[in-house]
Design a binder for these strands. Structure first.
Lengths: 351, 351
DNA sequence: TTGTAAGCGTTATCAC
DNA sequence: GTGATAACGCTTACAA
């Protein structure tokens, strides 16, 4: 059906090699033949068969991206950024969803489908640091997130501890001292939850404030419903609090919802801050203060590192680790900064 | 590096064909040879090279999905559902983002990257019905959405008119008579916006109410910010209204935000209803009433139709058109149904 | 029941 | 500058 190099060669009355040379921009071709070939290509609507090229070259021009699930806004926005970055390099992206399930994650990294991609950007959720050795796979791999540190793979991560400390410090600057955290993961040492809580503790200690375990609320899932439920639970305990730090925006948005439903005003009674800077956080009511942990930079970097690995021919460079920059995005939900001498400097004030 | 059929054959002391037979489950193989081959496969960690298989078979086991952008929640949730559906068939999904740009959409359908996929599920936004002929592509194609009707391709769509009429009728049942619509597209005849507005008009006429053009507000983009801006514009005109029908949930959520910021109570002063039933709509404040237009069913059906086309060998079946079912999801933002005799029948009441 | 060999559409090595 | 021709790893007639 589709025209092949062979068909073009026949029509242009040259060899198949010459057509290939033209297609691949080989410089030493007589202008007249080149023109003839180009005409034949146009006439037949020839397009190179990428599968055949992939077989020959050992590269397909497609990378894989494995995330827990796209319905989680963070991963949708991450995938969006990865696809854009890859597209700038002329590379396609095949997406896998793991549901954060360890078995699925394990199956995925050795799946035959990996053969159709030149490398994988992988954001694990079920695997942990103890699984690091399993990630010594035979193809280029870039890890995202905080679940695994010691793997023999490049790693792009965010400054969880520092960013969480910055968020907490800003709550303290708003005059809050009883800051609840929602979304903690029981017994976790690494992982986003644990690291962000470490930053929270750091900031409290730095301010000479105690860390009240009653204010650290668990929630395995980080969906909106969990944020709401967790805050309702907190309200029921009667433990006083004047701020909520949602370990991600989705939790924080759920928290705002539950607070308002309970007649608690945000930020007058309780300040709220999240983490991730989702698109929608700018449009919640009140708009959500949050940490922009560098999602787009992470996507760009992950794609760049992966493509570098794929292009690598000789000895492998040592594995690299990159931390993206973060910034605090101040919006309505946090309340004024009492230490601020220049309130007009505040960012991201919605109209 | 990776083991091939050849390596396995060597180790098992059989021909390459026999190994292939084992791998593909060919039944007539002596048990002893089969065991030997299986052992060799395990010993070498052999995995079939899917690129080579794809070249030989003309099928890659991957389908493409082209959507405007994943950061739009609707498309993230759609992509999630498509990936799940494809995965149930052992098929991978490569995602392309068009940004709703006509040129990108055009480039995409003829891109060489199509060669790497067995077919495409395409949700156009820039192309219109006048481009239908361009969709006579040489590979299996399933269209989504309302932009193109006359294309020579299978088509999975939602019942926009009927669903929008149902939403409008429910607003009327809440005692609303001045129902604003936000998200209209100037001059559009087909397309989701036009169809949903047609449903809106139908319901009003059915109720003997006039259609006030001043209540139909345009917004090309359907982001949250547009919903907010459009409602602010409406408030500024001073035109009275007691309900807002957002042509999608994102617009409706932005609208709620703008109404609240202006001191308008939802649903006491103004009822709001959206369209799409995003995950997050259940957790807004107030929770958003909306239309579930059958997103998951659409994904499942699209994948099924596409795989049927891919499997097609002989003459092509005529193009098919499928409309997914819809349902009205009643939540807080709409206010009570004055006609309802059985209020306890209302669905989806959040806790 | 198993083996041989052709060929899918490329790219790459060499001659010419 | 250009042309044969051999892989890449697989499936599949056709033989044996």
């Amino acid at each position: 059906m589709a025209a092949t190099l062979h068909d073009v060669a026949l029509l242009a009355k040259v060899s198949i090699k010459t057509v290939s040379n033209v297609v691949n921009g080989y410089p030493y071709i007589k202008d007249s033949t080149k023109t003839r070939v180009l005409e034949a290509i146009a006439a037949l609507g020839y397009q190179p068969n990428l599968t055949a090229r992939g077989l020959r070259l050992g590269r397909t021009g497609v990378i894989g991206l494995a995330v827990p699930e796209l319905r989680l806004s963070y991963f949708a926005e991450l995938a969006d950024a990865v696809i854009r970055a890859a597209d700038r390099h002329g590379i396609g992206v095949q997406i896998e969803q793991t549901n954060g399930d360890r078995d699925r994650e394990l199956a995925l990294i050795t799946s035959a489908r990996r053969q159709l991609t030149d490398g994988l950007i992988f954001s694990p959720l079920g695997l942990g640091n103890e699984d690091a050795a399993l990630l010594a796979v035979g193809y280029p791999l870039v890890l995202l997130g905080e679940r695994i540190f010691d793997a023999p793979a490049d790693h792009v991560t965010m400054r969880n501890v520092e960013a969480a400390a910055a968020a907490t410090r800003r709550l303290l600057a708003a005059g809050r001292t009883r800051i609840a955290v929602i979304g903690a993961h029981e017994g976790e040492v690494y992982g986003s939850a644990a690291l962000r809580i470490r930053g929270y503790r750091d900031a409290l200690q730095e301010a000479g404030l105690p860390v009240d375990p009653a204010l650290i609320r668990h929630s395995d899932m980080w969906h909106r419903a969990n944020g709401a439920t967790t805050v309702r639970g907190l309200l029921e305990t009667g433990v006083p609090f004047d701020a909520v730090f949602g370990l991600n925006d989705t939790l924080a948005l759920g928290a705002i919802r539950a607070l308002q439903a309970a007649g608690v005003r945000v930020p007058e009674d309780v300040s709220v801050v999240g983490f991730d800077n989702l698109d929608e956080s700018e449009y919640s009511h009140p708009s959500l203060s949050t940490i922009d942990a560098g999602r787009d930079e992470i996507a760009d970097t992950a794609v760049r590192l992966l493509l570098e690995r794929i292009a690598e021919t000789g000895p492998k460079a040592p594995t690299r680790r990159v931390e993206a920059d973060f910034r605090l995005v101040e919006r309505e939900s946090i309340g004024p900064d009492r230490n601020a001498h220049h309130p007009h400097n505040r960012q991201d004030q919605p109209a």
